[in-house]
């Protein structure tokens, strides 16, 4: 098992390396650089100034030279400075956003799991019941509604009209600490968490239902029932474990998606996370930030997949890694 994990991690290092080369190359191929956009903001600034800054930042050097400089400083643990946010280090920029993204992603994953799995099981146990139809309807709706639209509707009704939840941000005021801050954060996470988890919930529910239905129809379940096993132990001991395997695969991917793909939700709720930072850094050609986030996402996807593999072996004892 440990050998397997170490092997997986070792394999990932060259992959990460290739990823950085690709992202760096693609980013550099895009026309313009970090200073191109800024130069239009204020026509009173002499364009010569930007030329001097380009020179100072080394943006005029050939791409391999720039990449070499970047990778060697990363190897020393320095992610560099942002080109757009004057003088701010990439590590500092990412730090606060990463925590926000992590909280939101985890929160939304919890909602997803807590809602989708029980409902999925129930609708499989009682297919074509009222709740099953309701869940199916909700599933299609959840998949069909675009994130931002659902978010806006939720804000409009639950926040602006009813005032139950805050509409924007992660906290209601700076300087709140302790337990109060925790509650405040949760309160702020409910709407974006639901919005972010909506599509996932719908998907998992559908998967869970069909998986459970599938397993319930299989021979070993009939055998178990024939042995006189109780309904609940058939369901929880035999069915659930087998039905969860595909869900776990999905979830492994989902971690990366949740952390990197929350751009729209973060924007609508002005929830400062990695997604919006990534997007703005790409449009601003802020390579050091883009590279750092790409690396973080790469690592997270690896961890997600690794966790999924580990969970397999817990859920299905037939799966062994050596």
């Amino acid at each position: 098992m440990y050998k397997y994990i170490i092997r997986r991690i070792l394999v990932f290092i060259p992959m990460l390396f290739i990823l950085t080369i690709m992202v760096f190359g693609l980013a550099q191929l895009a026309p313009g650089d970090a200073l191109t956009g800024q130069s239009l903001a204020d026509p009173n600034v002499d364009p010569e100034v930007y030329e001097q800054q380009r020179e100072a930042l080394g943006l005029n050097d050939p791409i391999p030279v720039q990449y070499g400089r970047w990778i060697s400083s990363v190897a020393q643990g320095d992610l560099g400075n942002s080109l757009v946010f004057n003088g701010r280090s990439v590590a500092e920029l990412i730090e606060s956003r990463f925590a926000n993204t992590l909280y939101l992603g985890f929160f939304s994953l919890c909602i997803t799991i807590l809602v989708s799995i029980p409902i999925g099981i129930y609708s499989a146990k009682r297919p074509y019941s009222l709740l099953d139809y309701g869940a199916t309807g909700f599933g299609f709706l959840g998949l069909a509604i675009p994130n931002f639209f659902f978010g806006l509707i939720a804000i409009y009704i639950l926040s602006i009209k009813l005032g139950w939840f805050p509409a924007q941000g992660t906290m209601s005021a700076p300087g709140v600490t302790g337990f109060e801050a925790f509650i405040d954060r949760i309160h702020h996470m409910i709407l974006p968490g639901i919005t972010l988890g909506l599509a996932g919930t719908a998907t998992y529910m559908r998967y869970m239902r069909s998986e459970v239905l599938d397993v319930l129809g299989s021979d070993y379940i009939r055998t178990a029932r024939a042995k006189g096993m109780s309904d609940s132990s058939v369901l929880y001991k035999h069915t659930l474990r087998n039905a969860l395997i595909p869900i776990i695969t999905l979830m492994g991917f989902e971690i990366g998606v949740l952390l990197g793909g929350a751009v729209i939700t973060e924007q609508v709720f002005q929830y400062p996370g990695l997604g919006t930072l990534f997007l703005s850094s790409v449009t601003n050609r802020d390579y050091p930030v883009v590279m750092a986030i790409a690396m973080i996402l790469g690592i997270l996807i690896l961890i997600g997949n690794l966790l999924a593999d580990i969970f397999y072996s817990i859920i299905d004892p037939r799966i062994r890694y050596d």
Partner: peptide, 29 residues
């Protein structure tokens, strides 16, 4: 100067104006 606390941090930015930049929740408030 660009990375100095008196440039970046609420409570440390010093001016002469009628209001003091006292607190921030970065990118929110």
């Amino acid at each position: 100067i660009p990375s100095h606390p008196a440039t970046l941090n609420a409570g440390e930015v010093i001016g002469t104006g009628p209001f003091v930049f006292s607190e921030m929740l970065e990118r929110e408030q």
